[in-house]
Each structure stands twice: as C-alpha cells, then as structure tokens.
Design a binder for these strands. Structure first.
Length: 270
DNA sequence: AACATTCGCAACCGCCTGGGT
DNA sequence: GACCCAGGCGGTTGCGAATGT
C-alpha cells in the first residue's frame, strides 16, 4: 500500500487545464465504473492527474445535469438569500441550486454579486449617515434623497414590474397596510423569537448566526437594537411584484411603521 | 494597432474532518 | 490517543478573453 502510494507520488502528475482527451477518459471511466475511491480513478482511467483533480473536474464540469447557461435572476436571488443566511457556505448554497456547483456559485459571487451587495451597503451607510447627521428619524422627507442615491446604483428600472407610486406618497402602513410591499426581514430577524410573537429583532448582524433560519434580503432596518414590537421601526424597503429580489436592488422609499402592523405571513418567506 | 486593465472562470492549494488502523 | 489517508470545502491564483485607453 505504502509502496504503491510512494510510486504514485513519483509519477509525474499533470496540472493545468484539462484536455478533451483527458475529459473523455475520466468521463468514460466514471460512467462505466463509478468513481469509488477518487485516488484510484486516475490510475485506473489512465490519467496523469491526482484524485483530487479528477474529483474536481468531474464535479465541476463533467458531471451530468450541470447547467452551462448564465445564472438566472431567480438563481441570483436565491444565492443572495442563502448567502445572507449561511455566509460563504458555497456547498450548502449549491444544494439549493440544481445543476450549479459550489465553485460556480462562488465565482459568480466574487465576480458579480458581491459588488452588487456592496453597492447596496453603501446606500445603507448613506442612509444611516443622513439620519445621524440630521439627528432625526428617517422620515419620508428623506425619500427623495434616497431615490437620488438609488439612481447611483446600477439598476434597470424596467425590471420593476409594479407601480410603486401607490405607496410613495402614503403616510405608512398604518393606513395602507394592504398595499405595502412584502417586506422580507433578513439578517436581523430571528425566526425563533418572531414565532413567539414577542418581538421583531433588529440585531444588525451581531446576533447569533444560528438564529437566522431564513434570510431573504429585501429590507433594511435603520434604527438599532429595537426589540419591542410596539416600537416604530424605520425601514428602507425595496419591492417589486413578482421578483422579490431584484438585483441590484432598488431603494424605493423609507417607511415608518410599527411591527405590530404586519401580519406574520407578510414577514415570512421560506 | 498596441498596450493596459478588468473580468470570468477553471483549477490548485491548504486546511479541516471523519473513518480506519 | 496518535497517526494516516481520503474526501470535502473555501480561499486564492493563473490565464485567456473582453474591454478600455
């Protein structure tokens, strides 16, 4: 056993891109015999690669059922949602996206989605800054400012499928609760506590991650640490009709509302 | 056209974990 | 319990293509 492994190490192992011939050898072998022990695959398949490389090539490229097309908006929304919940757990995220590999998702995150999130975070920072500087609550007087900021976020307005004007001039959910967009509380909502109807938890990303049982990202709380359901929460909402996670997101309006104004069903997204 | 920069993606590297001895 | 090994995972790198100057 040891001699065999030692011999293997002495074998010159190829690195770099896979040739079509190597792909064919690996595909033929795994299809016919299964991979079993990956370390044995290159030996049996006649490849000068190590087992890890074969495994990676199979999982990320040769495995049947892989999607070769670009990520759909829905897939991106799912990634954003799950990343908000799980962090960089790419393998877990990939389990919710059939035909996508963890490597593919990771690459897409680093090359595109992360930038979109950072843009949104910049918007959020400006909101907080505005509220702090003015020493007042974020009210609708800020909405025009928010809209101007949102224009700096790359966003195709045609992606919006509903008319937001019906809420833009509304005083808040106290009077127009049924017309509110579905607001999805993400990083800052503990489902466990919320199920107890006790409070809306605004943890601003510092709470125990295990509390995050779901994490659709479609709203931001701008006040801090409120745990009282009677409190008014300043929330920046973005919304659309069909797609809950327009990417990049658009900030449409700032609401003041009470947690008690919402039905639980309006807050949950599984 | 030539060069520089950015982007997207495939693959590698190193670490961790679990099973076997 | 210590050690070895394979598998799995996330971070990072390298390179060709695309884009900008």
């Amino acid at each position: 056993m040891r001699c065999k492994q030692s011999d293997n190490r002495k074998m010159k192992q190829k690195k770099g891109l896979w040739s079509p011939d190597e792909d064919q050898k690996l595909r033929d072998y795994v299809v016919n015999y299964g991979h079993g022990s990956w370390s044995a695959v290159p030996i049996n398949a006649g490849l000068q690669r190590n087992g890890k490389s074969c495994r990676l090539r199979w999982i990320n490229y040769l495995r049947p059922g892989l999607k070769k097309c670009a990520f759909s908006m829905q897939e991106e929304e799912t990634i954003l949602t799950l990343h908000g919940l799980l962090g960089n757990k790419w393998s877990l995220i990939s389990q919710h996206l059939s035909g996508r590999t963890d490597n593919e998702i990771k690459n897409h995150w680093h090359s595109y989605l992360k930038k979109q999130v950072q843009k949104l975070e910049n918007v959020e920072a400006k909101i907080k800054s505005e509220c702090t500087n003015s020493n007042t609550r974020c009210t609708e007087s800020s909405s025009s400012y928010m809209n101007s900021i949102s224009q700096n976020v790359s966003f195709d307005s045609s992606e919006l499928t509903n008319d937001s004007s019906n809420v833009t001039n509304q005083p808040g959910p106290h009077t127009q609760i049924n017309k509110l967009p579905k607001i999805l509380f993400a990083d800052w909502l503990s489902l466990e506590e919320f199920n107890g109807h006790e409070s809306l938890v605004c943890n601003n990303g510092v709470s125990n991650e295990s509390n995050y049982q779901y994490a659709p990202v479609n709203g931001m709380v701008s006040n801090e640490g409120s745990t009282d359901s009677s409190d008014t929460v300043n929330c920046v909402c973005n919304y659309s009709d069909e797609d809950m996670f327009q990417t990049p997101m658009k900030v449409d309006q700032i609401f003041n509302f009470s947690v008690a104004d919402f039905n639980i069903e309006d807050l949950l997204y599984i």
